[in-house]
Amino acid sequence: MSALLRVQDLKKHFPIGKDLFGRPTQVVHAVESVSFDVEKGRTLGIVGESGCGKSTTARLLMHLIEPDEGRISIRGKEFGNIGGRHPVAQLRRQMQMVFQDSYASLNPRLTIEDSIAFGPQIHGVSETLARQQARDLLDRVGLNPSVFIRRYPHELSGGQRQRVNIARALAIKPEIVILDEAVSALDKSVQAQVLNLLSDLKKEFELTYLFISHDLNVVQYISDDVMVMYLGQVVESGPVAQLYENPAHPYTRALLNSVPAQTPGQSKNYIVLEGDPPNPIAPPKGCRFHPRCQFAKAICAEKEPETVKVSGSHKAACFKLPGSVDHQTYIRLQEVSHEPRG
């Protein structure tokens, strides 16, 4: 089965600080060679700690930020602002996005109805029809149209606003919806309601989701596949069950291990990652995770590990994996001793 959305070698470097001639003095390596496929009707969860490039990836996909390199294609059609590719405007009809901040992502001066009906009108739907659709969508996301249609964003609660944002994204009738931390700002009970709503909508409108979150439980609940990012790179990806039960990359292992124990009183041996994630302005040489990795050996600081198959579609980038070309070299090397933490 061919992928609905295919992303290949997506890359973005942000210049920071400029010299006298406007040349960047430093660059932030925000997203580095990110590739993935999403099949129709599936949900891809993207996890990673803050600053790992999850949101930048989302904005690159929508072309809200222009990618430096890479190909984004839907059903084999490649989109972009470069000549020969299909225009970004077409891409935006097939892919929509829900943002984390439910308040900032709605225009405070527009009524809920105007906000939802705005997108379709851009695409040539008549105002009457767009308004009618807005009412239907509001009803569909669980908000009574006759009550909410004339309201302003500040008159709604966070959960209600996020429902409006979902309706707004669906108004254009996209195939793919990017949910960038869409439930992270909501409290637990509302989160559950919105997640259930998302599952229902997915079935009803045959949607494909890209679910970006730092909440591992939520990702496990909603995703079919998971992709783990670290410092702008994909370190591991695969079906959710396999990846959660049998994490291959040391970073994924540490990340999953950090989820608090579900039973009160039960103690857990946490893998503690030392230090903050390294600076994306000067990412470490070799494997980007090696300064914090408890299994790091000399080769990890020298060479970047390639992505290898763990089993089936489960893939990871680490020398510890038997599939890795330099696995034998890694095995023979002495472990680098970490300084005991003070």
Binding site: R59, M62, L64, A89, R92, R93, Q96, M97, F99, D101, A104, S105, L106, N107, L110, S115, F118, G119, I122, H123, N165, R168, I172
Partner: peptide, 22 residues
């Protein structure tokens, strides 16, 4: 820099429409 401007752009609106409406 607010998200609703990005959301409007993601809806396919051009700069003129975004300035006028949002």
């Amino acid at each position: 820099n607010l998200d609703f401007v990005d959301a409007a752009r993601a809806s396919g609106a051009n700069s003129f429409t975004i300035i006028r409406v949002h």
